[in-house]
Design a protein around this nucleic acid. Structure first.
Lengths: 201, 201
DNA sequence: CAAAAAAACTTTAGGCTTGAAATAGTTTTC
DNA sequence: GAAAACTATTTCAAGCCTAAAGTTTTTTTG
């Protein structure tokens, strides 16, 4: 099984016209350049113009999936920063640690967070500095670092976790339990499809 | 409407046990630290342990949604890099430009890609340097930069777009047209839910 | 047991991303 | 028509992220 690293970024949104629900009015100005009036953002997600072997539907679905998670993730990030002066990676790392009472090895954090080990090094360093976590060399294996939440870190995390759950509930407002279940199940199948494809190399 | 910026990162995966399908065996070693054996990555997505006011389902759904898009995005990124020595943001930007024959204003690119304007500046700079796009000051409004694909950039993009569509089709392999449609529709409702919540400020 | 392989991290170079502050050009207002 | 407000973009500091190469320590193997 190969490693799955990610950088930052966005995704493929070409071959698509503007969505009618985005409220954007596209027209041509003096320079013959596309310009829009009004909202702060516009997602490129919409109808695929050509569909080679009906890859179009998959592409459309992928774009919508990506738009949803980008939108939600961005908002969570923003609120975390504004209300708790915290970043998502920091929150995430503490979340992983929260259930590991005895602490967690750095490599395990890396796997669970699906980010590269080198990344965790610096992230942990900053969290140690701000007093949220501790880092201890294992007595049994001196290569190993054990990371654990401090009581301060735990208290801070608790506050954020509560707010976070509320935010998600707010954003998912109009989704009923039944719809949520359908989405959950279908996404489960998609996840398996992706994992299978990835395992095929 | 507020701006929606994002940094890089992952998301909240706490309050969750390991998924049985991840193939991970968690146990406690000499240090009393959680260690796992086996795969390269483990997603933290799974059953929410406590559910305050049944925020649990939303949280679960969000986590699964995020896992799906992280997995897919990571793989697309990896292939783009390996097979075309290109990053996702570069590909994305070219994708936006591809349909704007006359070019696009920098600010419009920023909106469509849902990233901050300052980001586009550097991205465009690198694409100009590698000969994929051109940057021209508008004659009508000297504040404005018009960005357009070069024919080289267009040719390169075409190759990548074809491969990209195939990759998505491959990853979405087992999803049927009908299931895809259901997912698409439900995600559409979710998107509206999020956009509405965001518009409420 | 010594050499080789493996494992857990860290370091490095380079790209992406943001929010905030600065710059420059355009439009509005009085 | 000058001052004020607005708009498009750039610059900056800081953080996140990766792949690849390097370090130290442990395990495996001949």
């Amino acid at each position: 099984m190969k490693a799955l690293f990610k950088t930052a970024g966005q995704a493929y949104k070409a071959h698509h016209a503007l969505p009618p629900d985005a409220g954007t009015i596209a027209d041509v100005n003096h320079d013959n350049v596309v310009k829009t009036i009004s909202p702060d953002w516009v997602d490129g997600e919409t109808k695929v113009m050509e569909s080679p072997a009906d890859h179009g539907q998959d592409l459309r679905l992928w774009l919508r999936l990506l738009t949803c998670s980008t939108l939600i993730e961005g908002e969570i990030r923003r609120r975390l920063r504004e209300q708790f002066d915290c970043t998502l990676p920091r929150f995430d790392l503490m979340a992983q640690l929260e259930r590991a009472k005895a602490g967690m090895v750095l490599g395990e954090l890396s796997k669970r967070m699906m980010v590269s080990p080198g990344n965790i090094t610096a992230l942990v360093e900053r969290l140690v500095e701000s007093g949220h976590v501790t880092r201890t060399v294992s007595a049994a294996d001196r290569r190993v670092q054990i990371i654990a939440l401090t009581s301060f870190g735990r208290a801070e995390f608790e506050k954020m976790a509560t707010a976070h759950a509320d935010w998600i509930a707010e954003l998912f407002d109009v989704i009923t339990a039944r719809e949520g279940q359908i989405l959950f199940d279908r996404l489960g199948k998609l996840k398996r499809s992706v994992v299978t494809a990835l395992a095929r190399d």
